[in-house]
Lab assay of single mutants.
Amino acid sequence: MQIFVKTLTGKTITLEVEPSDTIENVKAKIQDKEGIPPDQQRLIFNGKQLEDGRTLSDYNIQKDSTLHLVLR
């Protein structure tokens, strides 16, 4: 499925993911596309910070959902 990740600069990254993917996996995909190390990434969905060990389906993230990427 496709999800979107919006950065603070207003750029939107499109990712191909599975609901069973962990947040860690998603961060690795963002690193592949953008070169941002996962330990600098914080992903936010519906105002909640997403934890590495959880999956997209844990957070009820579905296709065409938009996550927000904050760098630390």
Rank of each mutant, 00 (worst) to 15 (best):
M1E: 08
E51H: 15
Q40Y: 09
Q62W: 09
T22A: 12
P38T: 14
D21R: 03
S57F: 07
D39P: 04
L67V: 08
K33R: 06
V17E: 02
I13Y: 08
E51Y: 06
I23F: 10
K6G: 02
T66P: 02
E24V: 02
R72P: 07
E34A: 11
P38N: 15
L71Y: 15
N60L: 10
R54W: 13
P19G: 12
F45G: 08
K6F: 10
T14Y: 09
V17A: 14
T7L: 07
T9R: 02
G53T: 10
E24K: 02
I36K: 04
I44V: 13
G47F: 11
P37Y: 13
R72S: 14
E51P: 05
Q62M: 11
D39S: 11
L8Y: 05
N46S: 11
Q41H: 14
Q40W: 05
I3Q: 00
F4Q: 07
D58T: 09
D58K: 07
L8F: 04
K29Y: 08
I36H: 12
K48P: 02
S65G: 04
N25T: 11
P38W: 06
D64N: 11
L50N: 00
E18W: 13
I3G: 00
R42I: 15
I61K: 00
D64W: 04
K27H: 03
A28Q: 07
L67G: 01
T22V: 12
Q49M: 12
K33T: 05
E16F: 13
P37D: 13
Q2M: 07
I36S: 14
D58H: 15
V26L: 13
D21Q: 04
E16G: 05
T9S: 06
F4V: 13
Q49R: 14
Y59A: 06
L56M: 09
R54T: 11
K48Y: 12
N46W: 10
M1R: 08
I3F: 01
V5A: 06
V26H: 00
Q41Y: 02
E16W: 13
G10A: 09
D64Q: 05
N60T: 15
D39M: 15
G10M: 05
K11Y: 09
T7M: 15
G47T: 13
E24R: 09
E51I: 09
I13S: 06
K11I: 10
I30N: 01
R72V: 13
I30T: 03
S20K: 15
D21P: 01
T22I: 07
G53D: 10
I36T: 15
E51L: 05
V5Q: 00
R42A: 14
N46V: 13
G53V: 13
Q2H: 12
T14L: 12
L43E: 00
L56F: 05
D52N: 04
K27A: 02
P19R: 06
I61E: 00
E16Q: 12
E51R: 05
I13G: 02
E51F: 03
N60V: 05
E18V: 11
D39H: 07
H68A: 04
K6M: 15
L8M: 09
E24Y: 07
T55S: 12
Y59E: 07
E51W: 03
Q2P: 15
T22P: 14
P37E: 15
T7G: 14
V26W: 01
E34M: 12
T55A: 08
V70N: 08
H68Q: 11
L69W: 02
I36L: 13
E51A: 06
Q62S: 09
L69E: 01
N46I: 06
I36F: 13
R72T: 14
K33I: 11
D32E: 12
I36Y: 10
V5R: 00
V26F: 07
D58Y: 07
